[in-house]
Simulated assay, not measured.
Amino acid sequence: MTGLPASPAALRTWLGLGLFVLLCLGIGQALEKKVVRSKVGEKVSLPCCHEIPSSESLHKYRVYWQKNITDVVLAYSEGSKIFQHERYQNRTEMDPWNLTLWISPMEILDNGSYQCVVQRNSVLVCSESVILFVTADFSTPNITAEVSAESCDSTEMVITCSSHGGFPKPKISGALNNMSVEWNASWVSESSFSPYSVTGKLVLNVTKDVNISCSVEYSGFAKSTSLLLKKTKNCVVPPVPPPYNVITASIIILITFILAITLAARYLPRHVCSQCCKRQDSAEEGVKECTKAPMSSKMTSETSSV
């Protein structure tokens, strides 16, 4: 027969190995914890680790349902209820065969870790933990916009998104024309197990009509809403005066054009008049030549007859 090592060093080694095994078993049990999710007002069932065979009855068993290891929710012994926590009065019942614990209606304070402990003839049959996550729906977010400053180019707005009455503590997110934005969020709650109110604020410079959305996310659920933001002030932009060099060039062109017209007005009448006079003089000379020609012809004939 082999006994435990007698030396202190060997004993410490065995104790260390034992503690390591217990730690591993504890971690394994923690990883095997079941998770149940429910909402405020609903009915939830928490499964136990043992089911009584049809050949037996609850009279041979002791069953304890406890919360956070310290508070006993419900206790049965020899088939009868021997204890029930005042917070769970008229809200809990246990199945006599599969030992499932039913809680209805759910409250935020029911959130936590539960443990089912089963004994048969004072011998532990099983012990298993169940984590219960309780959620409460938030109201549909409400978005408001307040104009803080405006100009022809843009409108500065303070956007507020708020929601209340939910659990657990939520996240708030949003998008501006499908591009994510970060809200400056704040939360209000009376305690860690009380409903939350959340408010998010955002300052935007709106240069055109845009759509903003706000979403409140909690324990895998979400409530969203959106609002169309419109630019409030549209101004008629005055024409931009041309640059100094453009004005100077325009003045020079205009002066040149006026001088050209003035010179043309003075020069063209004289030129036309001189051309007309030349034409008239040429015509008169032609008439004179025509008149002189017959006379010289007549004188020639008279001379020849003499």
Rank of each mutant, 00 (worst) to 15 (best):
T92E: 11
R12S: 14
E86N: 09
P53Q: 11
S148P: 01
V203E: 07
G79Y: 08
R37D: 01
L4F: 14
E285V: 05
S296V: 09
T140R: 14
K298A: 07
R12H: 09
L19D: 13
Y218K: 00
M94L: 04
K43I: 13
L74K: 03
N178S: 12
S296N: 13
E128V: 05
P141V: 15
Q275F: 07
L132C: 03
S213F: 01
I103A: 06
S45M: 05
P5Q: 12
S297F: 06
A75M: 14
E42R: 07
T100I: 05
S215T: 15
Y196H: 05
P96A: 10
N98G: 12
V198K: 08
K34G: 15
T160F: 11
D137R: 13
Q89A: 15
S226T: 12
L254C: 10
D110W: 03
T155A: 02
R270Q: 10
L228T: 14
L204M: 09
T300G: 15
D95F: 00
E51T: 15
T140Y: 10
K201G: 02
T13V: 09
T135V: 10
S297T: 07
Q84H: 08
P105R: 00
K208I: 09
T155C: 02
G26S: 14
G286C: 05
P96V: 10
G220C: 01
A175E: 10
E182K: 11
T303H: 07
I82M: 08
H271D: 04
R266V: 13
